[in-house]
Design a binder for these strands. Structure first.
Lengths: 116, 116
DNA sequence: GGCCGTTTTCGATGGCGCTCGTACTATGGC
DNA sequence: GCCATAGTACGAGCGCCATCGAAAACGGCC
């Protein structure tokens, strides 16, 4: 079967005007997903799915990435066999001013308190 | 009416240093609870439990008030037979800067978009 | 081609929280 | 004392979501 199947796996991302506050809050309320977002924020650069630390299985992690993407919090793209993730920080800031930054701040503050 | 049996009904409130980000997010993720918080914020003054509009039964509403109180979002006190509610705005702002205000802003913005 | 590493899909499971109705308590007025 | 009003406690039902393991897709590499 000749298939010019342009591989280049693509990923669907919502326009942030289409995501609701409800969706974003539901995404951020899960501790594992907040971990992912935090690690992504602190890394300062894109991270592949396999490089995150979380107390769940890989298949569960995939589920969380889907939720985060559908809530407009992350953007994903393939690089070879790995899938990279970026925080949609600026877009979120425009859509829900102060929300993501407040959660991230509280999140890291609490992480430091736990370590201290 | 010497009635020492029941001291004026009191309500327990957590110190905000004891509430976690997780608790607050879990409280705010429920649409009904967000409605309550919004109405309280927009009222500009304390409201009794019976004056809220929500698409749930009274007993369910009681449950939501409990969750909000335990998350440190509202303060409750009795006045006669009614129970009043206040937003702990300033305390929350100190504990989780920008969080509640961001949610409230997004919440009212979306409400206006729906009405428009 | 064949293998390996990376991520996904699928179905099943388990627990938690929203919801309700009903019965109950508490307060104030008559 | 008695009733009305305001809110609560309790128990049950139910749906949803996080979680997992196993097996499959997909690309790269030799």
């Amino acid at each position: 079967m000749a298939r010019p199947r342009t591989a280049a796996r693509t990923v669907e991302h919502p326009d942030l005007s289409e995501v609701s506050l409800q969706q974003v809050l539901e995404a951020l309320v899960d501790p594992v997903r907040r971990m992912v977002v935090s690690q992504l924020s602190q890394a300062g650069e894109d991270k592949s799915c396999g490089t995150f630390e979380a107390p769940v299985s890989l298949s569960t992690l995939t589920h969380h990435f889907n939720v985060l993407r559908e809530a407009g919090l992350i953007r994903q793209y393939y690089v070879g066999t790995t899938k990279m993730n970026t925080l949609r920080t600026d877009e979120m800031e425009e859509r829900f001013p102060g929300l993501l930054s407040a959660v991230l701040a509280a999140s890291t503050a609490q992480a430091q308190a736990d370590t201290a």
